[in-house]
Amino acid sequence: MQVLETITSAFRGTFGETPTLIQSPGRVNLIGEHTDYNEGFVLPAAIDKAIYLAVGPRNDQKLHFVSADLNSTYQGSLTDIRRSGKGWANYLLGVIDQIQKEMSLPGGLNVVFGGTIPIGSGLSSSAALENGVAVALNHLYKLGMERVPMALLSQRAENQFVGVQCGIMDQFASMMGQEGQVIKLDCRSLEYAYAPLAMDGFRIVLCDSRVKHSLASTEYNTRREECEAGVAIVRASVGDQVRSLRDVTMDMLNRYVRDQEPLLYKRCAYVVLENQRLLNGVADLEAGNIEAFGQRMYESHEGLSKWYEVSCPELDILEDIARAHPGVLGARMMGGGFGGCTINLVREDALADFEAVVQREYLERTGQETLLHECRIEAGTHVV
């Protein structure tokens, strides 16, 4: 693979040694959007778009990182970890900072990394990079860390050092992925189980809207507040056993929220129904009924667009094009919303026609070109 040859060659040229190679995947989320911060369920999977790291230990305290894709270098020390003006370096430094809060590292680290995750596609390159550094240090220095704690450590690095208040899904999916399996993750307890996604005859295709509307961050925070406000109304009526939307039923929403706060009702109802859609979707996958699962993806998009209102015209157009194509089993927007990608389950024999139709119709209807990415479900972060 070209990227492995590139980073290996760069590592040898920079450090005069042969590196250890780490593959750390991006992720998709099949269903269960905006459920994570409501203590609900998500259904992600690791994919074959990844960050690759060439790594080696040092016998001093120095840190030397090279981003091959950005042609940028960072040098620092274990004894003086502080935020860098080079934003990309903070993802690596944050992980090292978290590890050093738990144990002292015996030496520094050399890293050259590059990737095949499309930038700005919402496939979580940051989580992949964080996990790659955690696995590298664990392997090189035999730290004995388990995989779930490493995913949590990567999340803390992003929350506390980088300053992005992400949930656990991205790091967990990238670390814990298995080939051909999706992960049913309970965001409250971190209990997880694998469900088969039998992709024989099907492909996952991401259609990139190529837009990111400025609403994304402010509306994300607003949605969190709206959900919490809905929970507070229900809690005032039924008591403290209701901690989050995870504990709320449609009956409770119909009784206590619908007439009093119609907007909050829409927001909360979407989340409660999405959790149930996900659990039903897992049952579909376990029964091998991928067609039924695809229909739940369409229902999820409808909820995100009309009830939760985090879609945008471009994403709705991509979903509309997919829904009209006979080779597509299911499609929906993926991620925070207001831009980014749709995720589509497409029959392999219809793939070329679907891609041609999407590119032609999206350009006609928006004046924008779309980028298409085919994905396979792969194993989580590992030493190559």
Rank of each mutant, 00 (worst) to 15 (best):
D97C: 13
Y141R: 02
M145H: 14
G144C: 01
V95K: 00
G163V: 02
V164W: 03
I99T: 06
A151F: 11
Y91E: 00
K142H: 12
I99C: 12
Y91L: 05
G108E: 01
N138A: 07
K142P: 09
W88Q: 05
E102A: 11
A151Y: 04
D80G: 06
G107P: 11
N110W: 03
W88I: 07
E130Q: 03
G85L: 09
M169L: 10
A134V: 04
G115L: 08
Q75F: 05
A68I: 14
Q75M: 15
T79C: 14
A128I: 04
M169H: 05
N138S: 07
L123M: 11
Q75T: 15
V95G: 04
S124G: 08
S125N: 05
L152S: 14
N159E: 08
N110T: 10
G76W: 04
G122P: 15
L153M: 07
L92D: 03
L93E: 06
I168D: 08
S125P: 14
G85N: 06
E130I: 15
D80L: 13
A127D: 10
A68G: 09
S154T: 06
G85F: 07
V162G: 10
I168R: 07
A127T: 15
T79N: 09
L153N: 02
W88V: 01
I96R: 09
K86A: 09
C166N: 10
Q75E: 08
G107N: 09
G163K: 15
L143H: 08
I81D: 00
G87S: 12
I99P: 12
R147K: 01
L137I: 00
I99Y: 13
G122E: 01
L143Q: 07
K142S: 07
R82Q: 12
S72K: 14
C166H: 04
S121I: 13
F113H: 15
V164K: 03
V133N: 00
L123T: 05
L129A: 09
L129C: 02
K86E: 03
Q100K: 00
G76Q: 09
S104Y: 07
S77E: 02
D170A: 00
G167M: 13
